[in-house]
Amino acid sequence: MTGWLPHPVSPFSYQGLTIWLGAVATLAIFSFLFRENRAYRFAEHTLLGLGIGFGVATTITDIIIPKWWNPLTEGWGQGHWGMVALALTELLLGLLWYGLYHRRTVWLSRIVMGLSIGAGAGLAFKAEINDKLPQIIASFKSPYVPAAEATAFNNPVSNTVFVVVMLAVLSYFFFSVEQRHPVLRTSSRIGRVFLMLTFGVFFSNAIMTRMSVFIERVWFLLTQWLRMGA
């Protein structure tokens, strides 16, 4: 930040050129706020192309070569036939996915699809238990907490609020019987209010994130490209 008046960075250096490219791309994307236009379309397609190209290239150089190609070639060179067999089996299973593209070979893709679904389901089962069980256990809170044991997350007020909100929201999602009973109906309505509050929190957090992204770009344009500031 070197002044109050804009004096853009020179584009005739590597760093300056990257800043200029970043600034032009940012302005092209922001131009959508004025109206749909060709500069925006160009920037959008360039970004997509770059992202996909970069992703494919790094997947080949950083994942496929070290995790598959190197073990295959090293195994072949050193006579470790187990490594070679494993790599070739991986290749075969990977190729089976392409069976999807022809009517006669679609059954081949189902083999590897079945394997993936089975592994995915097993993982999801383990993941959900490890993820949710501690949270279910933690939701059994006592409204009474001795003063010596009270913490920011475990104190009588917080725990009472927690239990009331949890029961109210659970009752809102209780669809097994019609919610005619006054207690269930009232609890369900309170639960709906708490849900609305939560959606408000979600929305305000979404605004915070979008705002951070926007601010970073505005500051980039002003301080790095135009070199303005106190």
């Binding site: 930040m1 109050w4 705002m211 926007f214 601010i215 505005v218 500051w219 002003l222 301080t223 303005m228 500031g229 106190a230």
Partner: peptide
Amino acid sequence: LAVAVAIPVFV
């Protein structure tokens, strides 16, 4: 909004 978030650049 852009002007508002740019204030701390100058002040």
